[in-house]
Design a protein around this nucleic acid. Structure first.
Length: 201
DNA sequence: TGCCAGGCCCTCTTTAGGGCCTT
């Protein structure tokens, strides 16, 4: 599989806007099945972290006061990612924060997002559920550290993406697994995945 | 002031409703 950037945001809430911003971002670069580069930073957008979110992530308002400004971090991470194809777990969430925070600094997304959750629903239908942590444990993937922190979650998603690529090779007989295949497969109705994969063999 | 997501997917469906998943 070609180089893929696996991204995870921690945020103050669910939907980006004046009252909800990113608080942390991590990106790991996957290349030939290995993590070859990492970027991670807290970022200060000047918003308080709600108690529920602080309890979930461990990221507090006090921690963000000493973090670099959101614009600086977003410019750095945008340079780091460049035009590399992106992947995230429940990518619709990370994509809307990526798009929103880039727009705040006058930049635009230039690549597509693959979603490990949509892929896992199709390729790992027997999993108890399709939360990132559950899939990691269920598939016997490495413990990457504290869940709900950006780097640990990005590494988990990267490991899951590798596992999904392995499933496509071993269980479905594919030789080449690409980001483009991920993007195509995540749009195929679950009932038609097997039929679709036959065309890629 | 009060409000506060949204796309995917299943089913007791399609003139709809509700759970999943992310913080």
């Amino acid at each position: 599989m070609e180089r893929i950037a696996v991204i995870d945001f921690e945020t103050t809430g669910i939907s980006p806007g004046r009252h909800c911003r990113a608080t942390e971002v991590a990106v790991v670069m996957l290349e030939r099945g290995r993590i070859v580069e990492r970027y991670q930073s807290l970022m200060n957008a000047g918003l308080p972290v709600p108690a529920f979110v602080a309890g979930l992530t461990g990221i507090t308002t006090a921690m963000l006061r000493s973090a670099p400004p959101v614009a600086q971090v977003m410019n750095e991470v945008a340079e780091f990612v460049g035009s590399t194809p992106l992947l995230a777990h429940n990518a619709s969430f990370d994509q809307k924060f990526w798009d929103y925070e880039l727009a705040q600094i006058g930049r635009n997304r230039v690549q597509s997002f693959a979603c490990s959750m949509l892929l896992a629903r199709r390729l790992l239908p027997g999993a108890p559920n399709h939360k990132l942590g559950t899939l990691t444990r269920w598939a016997g993937l490495p413990d990457t550290g504290t869940a709900h922190r950006a780097m640990a979650d990005a590494e988990m998603a990267a490991n899951l993406a590798q596992h999904l690529a392995g499933q496509l090779r071993q269980a479905h007989g594919l030789n080449e697994v690409s980001h483009q295949l991920f993007c195509s497969l995540q749009k195929v109705p679950a009932a038609k995945v097997a039929e679709t994969l036959k065309r890629y063999r």
